[in-house]
Simulated assay, not measured.
Amino acid sequence: MTRGVVDVDDVRDWPRAELQLPDGQRVRVRVTRCRPDRRGRYWYDYALELPTRLDDRRHGPSPTTYLFTGSAPHPIIQPIEGEDYRAIHAPPPEERQRWRLAPAPQPAWSDFCVHRLDCAQAETAERLLTDAEALQMLADPSVAVPCPVCRPDTVLRHL
């Protein structure tokens, strides 16, 4: 387990689940994400808020919280009935927004340029696109062209 980069107040909004510790104890944690591995087993990223002591030279010790984050597979972490887990599941592949739409660098090419998410050329991206939207935009070269740097067309042509 490592110290989390998630704010304690943000974690309190996530759904709860039961985590079984190696010695058999069960604790309630906040689940921040759920994702399947290659075998189809679901892993839950969780945050566990623990009490601890903060030492201050002027005021002495005071109670505070320490946020641990980790990940565990389904049988070790169990959902709690009545909790809403829809927010932690990734959308289906056809609904994922994996492309960026930015104004074309040279208006003579077309109006827009389609980029990969991590493309440095897409700093002025106006919105994100799904696979279907990106293919639709690239179908008409007068509307959008693929970025010549990140080449999204090499991935999209296989879809």
Rank of each mutant, 00 (worst) to 15 (best):
P15L: 00
W14S: 08
R30F: 11
R38L: 15
T52G: 07
Y66K: 11
R38V: 13
R41M: 14
D23R: 11
R28N: 11
Q20G: 05
W43Q: 04
R16M: 01
G60Q: 07
Y46T: 03
E18M: 14
D55P: 09
T64F: 03
V31G: 00
R39Q: 11
L48D: 13
R38F: 15
S62Q: 13
R26V: 13
R35N: 10
L19M: 02
R41T: 13
P61M: 08
H59L: 12
L21K: 04
S62W: 03
H59G: 04
W14V: 12
R28D: 07
R39V: 06
Y44Q: 02
W43L: 03
R53P: 00
G24S: 05
G40F: 09
C34H: 09
R33G: 07
G60N: 11
R57V: 14
H59I: 12
Q20E: 15
L19T: 03
R28A: 11
W14H: 10
W43S: 03
R53C: 02
R33C: 09
S62N: 05
A17E: 00
Y42Q: 12
W14K: 10
L67K: 00
D13T: 06
L19C: 03
T64S: 01
P61Q: 09
V29W: 03
Y46E: 00
R16I: 04
P51I: 02
P61L: 10
V27D: 00
V29R: 08
D13I: 06
Q25C: 03
D45M: 07
G60E: 14
R39W: 11
D45I: 07
Y44R: 10
P61R: 04
D56E: 10
S62H: 06
P63I: 07
P22N: 03
C34W: 07
R28L: 13
R58W: 06
E49S: 05
D13Y: 12
R28V: 14
E49G: 00
P36R: 14
R33Y: 14
V29S: 03
W14P: 10
V27P: 00
D37A: 05
P22E: 00
W14E: 14
W14L: 14
R16L: 02
R41H: 10
R30N: 05
D45G: 10
R39I: 08
Q25T: 08
R33K: 11
T32V: 04
L54E: 06
S62P: 00
Q20Y: 12
T65I: 08
L48K: 05
P22R: 13
P61E: 14
R38T: 12
Y46F: 11
R41S: 05
H59T: 11
G24R: 09
D23M: 03
T32L: 08
Y42F: 14
D37S: 04
Y42P: 01
Y66M: 13
R30M: 09
P15R: 02
A17R: 08
R35S: 07
D56W: 08
R16C: 01
T52M: 05
R26I: 09
D37W: 03
Y66L: 15
R26H: 07
D23Y: 13
T65M: 07
R57E: 15
